[in-house]
Structures are given as C-alpha cells and as structure tokens.
C-alpha cells in the first residue's frame, strides 16, 4: 500500500513531525496548566498529581489511562526525533559543498534553530525526569516519592537548577513558535486567510507556555512558594 510508504518521503516525515508535535503541544499546555496548581497550595498540588494516576476513573483503573498517555508521548517523541534526524541527514546530503558567504534574508531566529533547540529540549527533558519523576538522588537529593509539592519546592530552591529550567523553557518557547506555525503549513492547512490566525496561535503558545512554566520556579526563588 502506497500510503504506508509515506514515511520514506520528506513530506511524510514532516507530517509525522507535525502530528507528534501537536501531541506534545497538548502535553506541554496541560503540564503548564497543572503546574500552576502549585499556587493553590501544597494539598491542592499533591491532590492534582495523585489525580493524574486516577485519570479517567471510574472507567479506567489506577495508572491505566496515565500509562496509555505515557506510551503515546514516548512513541511521539521517538518518532519526532527520528524524523528530525532523518531530515537533517537528507539536508546535509543535499548540499555537499557549503557557501563561503551566506546571509539569512528573513528567516526568524526560532525557525533556523529548531534542530539545536530540539536537542536542548530533549536533554532538559531527561534531566527534568531525573529530578522530578524518577528522583535520581544525584540530581535531586531531597526527593521524596509521593510528595510532589515538596520535591518541586526543594528542586527549585537551587539557583542553578532554576536557571537551567529557564533556559529550557525559553528554548521550548522558540520551538513552539516555529513548530506551531510549521505544523499547519506541513499538514497543508495554511493559506493566506489562515496565516494570521496561525501566527497568532504560535505567538500565544510561545509566550504563555514558557511564562506559565517559568512562574513556578521564579515563585520558589522569590519565596512565594515554600
């Protein structure tokens, strides 16, 4: 079947990037929104974190829907990274000899740094999981399983950890800015009338998601959350 061979073409790979990207956009928006519950206090935040494990109750049991979601996110990110590597390699091969002089005419910073930003986000993701999900003691000495609010606060009381986090969310914002618009373009939904709407959505995500994420560690640093 021909449609199955789509993954071998650049447009097919980009469609895979777009679809896996939109899944992760959904994830970061919900994650950011969930994080803001830290401002409602320790009990509310811990209740929310525990609630994630009971998602879909009573139809789904303990950890069921969360496990399905985790599989979806892992598969999505693997496909996203695979497509990115494959397309990067194709682009490298397409220009064996580079220009001696090259000037960017109009491309925005976010669009030309997608590959580097992606690497930054991926590395941060691993660090972030080690700090706040797996509780690897080398990166988070005070981690207590089942105490997410305590783990969050103690994690961000470290200034270097907070700074790394802020760099990562800025990288995420840039990635979202080009990725959101690019996704519509790749899937063929963009046109002259839609363009402003899609750009607006890209701006909104690129600002709201990083600001929402950054607010929590900044509040910890300022002593608002403790």
């Amino acid at each position: 079947m021909q449609a199955a061979a789509l993954y071998r073409t650049s447009i097919g790979k980009k469609a895979i990037m777009a679809v896996s990207g939109v899944i992760w956009i959904g994830y970061v928006v919900m994650h950011m929104y969930g994080n803001l519950k830290a401002f409602l206090g320790e009990a509310a935040f811990n209740h929310y974190a525990e609630g994630l494990r009971e998602m879909g109750a009573p139809i789904f049991g303990h950890l069921h829907l969360l496990t399905v979601a985790r599989i979806l996110f892992v598969v999505s990110i693997v496909l996203h990274v695979w497509a990115a590597l494959s397309l990067t390699q194709q682009a490298r091969q397409a220009r064996p000899q580079n220009y001696a002089t090259r000037r960017v005419v109009q491309a925005n910073y976010a669009s030309v740094t997608m590959r580097y930003g992606g690497v930054v986000i991926l590395l941060f993701l691993l660090l972030h999981l080690m700090q706040l999900t797996w509780g690897v003691s080398a990166v988070h000495g005070e981690f207590i399983p089942g105490e997410p609010y305590h783990n969050l606060v103690t994690n961000f009381q470290s200034l270097p950890v907070t700074l790394v986090y802020l760099v990562a969310v800025v990288a995420l914002g840039l990635h979202l800015f080009h990725g959101t618009w690019s996704m519509f373009q790749t899937l063929g939904f963009n046109n002259e009338r839609m363009d402003r709407l899609i750009r607006g959505l890209a701006w909104a995500l690129a600002i709201l998601v990083p600001v929402g994420f950054a607010s929590v560690p900044i509040a910890v640093q300022l002593g608002i959350l403790s």
Partner: peptide
C-alpha cells in the same frame, strides 16, 4: 536528492 522543507521561508524571500 533535494532536501526537505523546514518552512523557514528563505526561498520565498529570494
């Protein structure tokens, strides 16, 4: 052997 598009728009600009 052309590369893939990353939607950055340099093509349209030139």
């Amino acid at each position: 052997g052309f590369g893939g598009c990353t939607n950055i728009g340099e093509c349209a600009a030139v």
